[in-house]
Simulated scan of single mutants.
Amino acid sequence: MAGTGCQDACLILTHQAERDDFEACRKIAIFPKPGSASRLTMGTRTATGELLMIDHISIGVRDISRAKQFYDVTLNALGYTCLSEAEDSLGYGRDAVALWVVAVDSPVPPDAGSGLHLCFAAPTRKDVDAFHKAALGAGGYDNGKPGLRTNYGANYYAAYVVDPGGYRIEALCGQAVS
Results as ranks from 00 to 15, higher is better:
P146D: 04
P110C: 13
C119Y: 09
V177C: 01
D105A: 15
W100H: 13
L148H: 05
C82W: 01
T46G: 15
C10Y: 10
S84M: 10
H132E: 06
A121E: 14
C6A: 06
V102A: 00
P164Y: 11
G139E: 05
R168F: 01
Y160D: 03
E50S: 08
D88R: 08
V161R: 03
A112Q: 07
V101G: 04
P32L: 02
G5T: 08
D129V: 05
A171F: 02
Y157A: 00
I54F: 04
L90M: 04
P32R: 01
A134K: 03
Y92T: 12
I30F: 15
P123H: 12
A86Q: 11
L51S: 12
G43N: 13
I12L: 11
D63Q: 12
D21L: 02
N151R: 07
E85H: 01
Y141C: 15
R62W: 00
N151E: 11
G139D: 06
E170R: 09
A47F: 00
T44S: 13
A9D: 00
F31E: 09
L83I: 10
D20Q: 04
P107H: 14
H132K: 06
R39A: 14
I57P: 05
P110Y: 13
P107Y: 14
H56N: 10
H132P: 03
L75P: 00
T14I: 05
Y80L: 10
H117E: 04
F131Y: 04
A158K: 03
K126R: 15
L99D: 04
G144Q: 03
R19S: 08
I12E: 10
H132Y: 15
A9Q: 00
S114F: 13
D163T: 04
M53V: 13
T81G: 09
R94F: 14
K126N: 15
L99C: 08
L78Q: 15
D95A: 13
G60E: 03
L90H: 04
A24Y: 00
G140Q: 05
T150P: 12
A9F: 01
S65W: 07
K27S: 09
K33C: 03
G165E: 14
P146S: 06
C173G: 08
D105F: 10
L13I: 12
G91T: 12
V61L: 01
K126A: 15
P109K: 09
K33W: 01
D21P: 03
G113S: 12
P109N: 06
A112L: 09
E50M: 08
